[in-house]
Nucleic acid binder design. Sequence first.
RNA 1: UGCCCUGUAGCUCAAUUGGCAGAGCGCCUGGCUCUGGACCAGGAGGUUCCAGGUUCGAAUCCUGGCGGGGCAACCA
Length: 758
Amino acid sequence: MNTSSTPSDFLRTIISRDLAQGNISDVVVRFPPEPNGYLHIGHAKSSTLNFGLAAEYGGRCHLRFDDTNPETEDQIYVDSIKQDLRWLGFDWGEHEYYASDYFETLFEWACQLINKGLAYVDDSQENLIRLMRGGVTTPGVHSEFRDRSPEENLELFHAMRSGEFQDGSRVLRAKIDMSHPNMKMRDPLMYRIRHATHYRQGDQWCIYPFYDWAHGQSDAIEGVTHSICTLEFSTNRILYDWYLDALEISARPRQYEFARLNLDYHVTSKRRLISLVQEHVVDGWSDPRMPTLAGLRRRGVRPEAIRSFCQSIGTTRVDSSHHPSLLDHHIREDLNHLAPRIHCVQDPLPVTLSNWPNDHVESLSAPYWPHDIPREGSRTLPFSGELFIERGDFSEDPPKGFKRLTPGGIVRLRHAYMIRCTNVEKDDHGHVTRLVCEWIEGTQSGTKDSDLKPKGTIHWVDVHNSSEAIVRVYQQLLSVPSVEDDLWSSLNPFSLIEHRHARMEPSVTQDSLDQRYQFVRLGYYWRDGTCADSEKPIFNCIVALRDSSVKKDASSQPSQTQVVKDKTLQKKSTADQRPLTPNEEQWLRRSGLNRAVGLAIYGVSEAVAFFDAASASAPRVSVGNWMANHLLPALKDQSISDLPFGPNEFAELVQLADREIGSAHEIRETLKRMFDTGEHPAVLLSTIQESFVSDPETLKEIALEVLHEYEDRVEAYANGKVGLLGFFIGQVMRRVHGHANPKLIQEIVSQELARMTS
RNA sequence: UGCCCUGUAGCUCAAUUGGCAGAGCGCCUGGCUCUGGACCAGGAGGUUCCAGGUUCGAAUCCUGGCGGGGCAACCA
């Protein structure tokens, strides 16, 4: 199976830390689909993440239906989502929840916000509200209803609930900040009026909460600790926190975002999937070409493959798109040890063996498994003078490297004999209709090697002892990696290839209907469950075998030349620096600092005065560097005057660094502690250094330990790879957990190195 | 144009939190084989987006720039 190394990603880092620091005692996550469609491969990523996290950390994962929009949601989707999740192998126990079950609580909480003056009823029209929100660079304006009293708001809100108003006539909004740089904070809507029947709550409600108002609160109600959603919600996080803070409830879930799954050559947007179904481009939601779990399932993909695919792609915050070959790889890996090998000829070409004894039928025994798979079992393969081979396995005019049958050439029929092609029969159009071949006696599979060297081995079936079948081979739905402008022109016209006259070997009739096979040299297949009543059996191709003979088509990985990744472009754009103002120029000249450092200081209020004061007793350049690189960035929101220390203490710190009383690492640590305690730098530094390994003998011991452990590298060092000095220092540093002076280590390591290699 | 996120091998991700830039997939070569599969061995592929700075040492910290994505639904 695939590499079982436990995945490491930013979420696991966060959760491990929360657990270690005691921020939480149990991990509670949730998978929150809206029941308005079928689950697809993207949901598989999200659900394996959440259910996987819960399992790994011994926590739990809730299934919550985010059903706050009565107009699009339906029980059939609830049912299909549950079915798909169970199929994937996930178990949520009794933790099945519905956001709509929280409507009453949400309503009460909204009233609380109204009472606090943090929410108001707005009678403005929809498009006016939109207009008044402003744009990304222009602030919004206040609604004329923004300053209604809590009493009036409460009364109106209750009237909204009791159905006194029409759809769209009023909304409840949070009262935040109409000029907030984040658009989501410009008095977001909390409730709309919708006189619609909810699939679960019926006509109980005519006001419905929006996502932002419902989601975080639902998380809090359920005790969710980590609320993991996709990247497009990252701008919503600030609102998520605002609502929870405003409510002052004890439960405190946190939202984290990760990148959704994109699969090249597949349609992933729900809207487009719907139109494919509605326009009958595909055979419903479970068409084997669809990226829905229902489609994947019908195609024959097993949940194990989907889960291992999802684990292998990792979890990041980077928008990325995956090539389907990776999914294919996991499907094959799953099926390789599971699917017995049988013969199927998809596109039959008749072959007559001219010298085969008349009417003789030989029963050959053929193992189901190749030598490298440790499984037992075989079946009987009837063999006579009338056979079918794959049309593509014969070529009159073979390309270079063709390893199959050619006029006059020899191939082995798998599990049977070698044959030589002696004659090619064609119709009036020059189309090959039949091959006449010579049976080569004594070449049966398993017998001693003959001198003959077949070009290759091909599969076959017996004409009179085989059955017809329909075989469907699928390719990606799109002919381009992603839909550009128009879905219809992006569709791959060859996404379904149907072989109506395929021939199967006879053993198949004895197998159970849900058996998955490898059709030798073709791929993995199984019977289409939805067509059980069809006259001929219908087989779906689950995934083709890897095929290094095929010319790569449009869906192959991009070639190196195709991908320039705009690197040249990026290079060209040298950092054009903005011109300086006269004041800035004067400041730079006066301070004697370089541009970057100088401007960093100039841009922060009080920083110039701080710099001037500090540089009275310490070198200006050092003061500048330490300020720009370490002091100012650590400031975050607070201002310089809030610091528990002043410029004089800072100057002392800089001097400690300058006189090499402390290493850069130690000085940084000292500064960090000054932020917390405000204590004197020299005192802090000496306590830090006390815990340091400063005894040269001890360090020498450790250095020798390292050098012995990495003898090969010492040799490489001796041979001129002097850059390894840094590596040795690093290793010693690691062993003392950073608690030592690097310059001292360098001295010692260099000495020992010189001794060893001289 | 405002705010937020994000740039590591062709692709997707790692890198013990400042210490030798690695893995899987894909690709190429060889071996094995009665599957152009699987398996085994090897290989190519990197200016860690760019330019500066701090440091004994930077993919990692700082400044500036460039590229990509998201946000202005009475959807979620």
